[in-house]
């Protein structure tokens, strides 16, 4: 009896677009939530794949290999938005120092909601308002919040994919949710 020989996979770049563009695009868009950006990431992935095709050892499938390139592109993108300064900075809701450190800042204190009516929670208008509020968050908050809450990824997976720690993630989720609550209060519930 002969030993089973390991399958050596080959790359066929001329078939990549037909075979993988939808798959990679879907992978990207659920993470970055932006059509053009997802498209650019797919393009960059194919280009980078072609460039490094000679390093492909055939140990994984073509698809797994391409996804690993796309994953790196997504981490790079996250790092880029993470280091962006000054734009759409999240508003502080709690005092950061002094004797009130950690207490609510007066004008950010939650107000009671007037129309909490349950019937409204499925309306298209509310969903649009949520998107609008999310889009007003700094990009990295929006990205992590969406991955966790809308795509419902596991904490562990998000941390691995974006190379962040769980406590990092919870700070981001906390800031995003506090900000969103305020935005929805002003534009939906007490509007």
């Amino acid at each position: 009896m002969s030993e089973p020989t390991a399958v050596v996979h080959k790359l066929e770049p001329n078939k990549w677009i037909d075979n993988y563009s939808d798959y990679l695009f879907n992978y990207a868009i659920v993470r970055v939530n932006n059509h053009d950006l997802a498209k650019d990431l797919v393009q960059e992935t194919f280009f980078a794949g072609l460039k490094s095709a000679k390093n492909f050892e055939g140990k994984s499938t073509e698809r797994t290999w391409l996804i690993s390139i796309l994953k790196r592109k997504i981490i790079d993108y996250y790092r880029k938005i993470n280091s962006k300064k000054g734009q759409a900075e999240v508003r502080m809701n709690f005092y950061e120092d002094g004797e009130n450190e950690g207490s609510w800042i007066e004008e950010r204190v939650p107000q009671s909601w007037e129309n909490e009516a349950e019937k409204k929670i499925e309306s298209k208008e509310l969903h649009n308002q949520i998107d609008d509020c999310i889009d007003h968050l700094p990009e990295k908050y929006a990205m992590v919040f969406r991955m966790k809450t809308i795509q419902e990824f596991d904490t562990e997976d998000i941390c691995k994919e974006l190379d962040i720690t769980p406590s990092n993630l919870w700070v981001i989720i906390h800031r995003a949710r506090t900000q969103l609550r305020k935005c929805l209060e002003e534009n939906w519930f007490n509007n």
Partner: peptide, 26 residues
């Protein structure tokens, strides 16, 4: 209290977004 309601709302939104996204491609 608000957070609990928002979680419910976000879950509904997640469901409807995913239904739409399934058909998204280039």
């Amino acid at each position: 209290k608000h957070n609990t309601l928002l979680t419910k709302i976000y879950k509904k939104k997640a469901k409807s977004d995913r239904a739409q996204k399934a058909t998204l491609c280039m």
